[in-house]
């Protein structure tokens, strides 16, 4: 049986280790395309993709858009502000309208957990979750893993600690699922007020002190701390957060070994991460961004029905047709 991803990419929790491996392996040949002078292959020519962003996002949206354009898809960006409730139109109506325009894929970013699944259950098009509430952000988890694999040559046995506001982080959840499925050990570190109460039940090791996390980990994935966590009473101040949990050069140098530094961005320099760490020799933060495009190309390609062996062929300008059975019925 050929391994596939199914219709949608909603999260890493439902995926198997083999499926994650497939995406990461498929991303490898796509990396090279972005290094060319002419960064375009015809793989998704004729496919229509809507980037439906209910939340502001620069990095993720641009990354998806580049991935789509480098695969020759036709793309439309829809920026809808706020939730469906405040917008007046319900998400289900939005979905039906998109479907009526005969699109092939939707990339959705939404403030409500479960919004991507909600959409996926109601339309035939492939749905890619670009972040739903505090649930998952699977392509971020994948690009983090690709970056770790690039650096360490493997994921199995790696110790990766996620530092910061895990409670409100979709990046953290996707990392936890993805890394554990790939055989890595996952640590969590942050103030307990910003960790889910039941976090231990997710198969992770919890560190109350960032120093202990640094001692344990091969890599730290440092999460952005939102300013509103302070006003909502989760932490007393950003200043104290930096003093207790901030990833600083001093703390890293006191550790027993080198630790790779990842950050999903955008960074609050001087809050969760100090500038000399973010810009330092062990930071792979910009590699993550580069890998983001390749991972998203791989996901788009696999969901469109492409088979992994054709990803290689895509490089030489051949590639799989994006046409799918269901689309022919619309002709």
């Amino acid at each position: 049986m050929t391994l596939s991803l199914g219709k949608d990419l909603l999260g890493l929790e439902p995926l198997s280790g083999e499926q994650i491996q497939l995406i990461l392996d498929t991303a490898e040949p796509f990396k090279e395309i972005s290094e060319r002078a002419i960064k375009k292959v015809p793989t998704l020519r004729g496919a229509t993709i809507v980037n439906l962003f209910f939340e502001a996002s620069t990095r993720t949206r641009v990354s998806f858009e580049f991935a789509e354009k480098r695969l020759s898809a036709d793309t439309v960006n829809v920026a809808a502000s706020g939730s469906s409730v405040s917008k007046g139109e319900t998400l289900v109506d939005t979905a039906r309208n998109l479907e009526a325009m005969r699109i092939d894929m939707v990339v959705i970013r939404h403030g409500a957990s479960g919004a991507a699944q909600f959409l996926a259950e109601r339309i035939e098009s492939n749905v890619i979750n670009a972040g739903d509430g505090t649930h998952e952000h699977p392509t971020q988890g994948l690009l983090d893993m690709l970056t770790l694999r690039d650096h360490f040559g493997k994921l199995a046995g790696l110790k990766v600690c996620i530092v910061g506001d895990v409670l409100h982080s979709r990046v953290a959840r996707s990392n936890i699922w993805g890394l554990t499925k790939m055989g890595a050990e996952v640590g969590i570190c942050g103030p307990r007020s910003l960790l889910p109460n039941a976090i231990d039940e997710l198969g992770v090791t919890v560190f109350d002190r960032v120093e202990a996390a640094i001692e344990w980990a091969d890599a730290l994935n440092v999460l952005r701390l939102q300013l509103e966590r302070m006003t909502a009473g989760y932490i007393p101040s950003l200043r104290e957060y930096n003093r207790v949990f901030g990833v600083s050069r001093e703390r890293l140098e006191r550790g027993p070994h080198e630790v790779l530094i990842l950050h999903p961005g955008p960074m609050n320099r001087g809050v969760e991460i100090d500038s000399d760490v973010a810009d330092g020799p062990f930071s792979v933060i910009l590699d993550q961004v580069t890998n983001g495009v390749a991972v998203r190309m791989a996901v788009l390609y696999l969901l469109s029905g492409g088979r992994p062996e054709l990803a290689e062929a895509a490089k030489s300008g051949g590639g799989a047709s994006a046409a799918k059975g269901k689309r022919s019925a619309d002709d």
Binding site: S113, R173, A198
Partner: peptide, 9 residues
């Protein structure tokens, strides 16, 4: 609980 933590609710 663990389900709310997983679902991000």
């Amino acid at each position: 609980g663990v389900t709310s933590a997983r679902l991000g609710l």
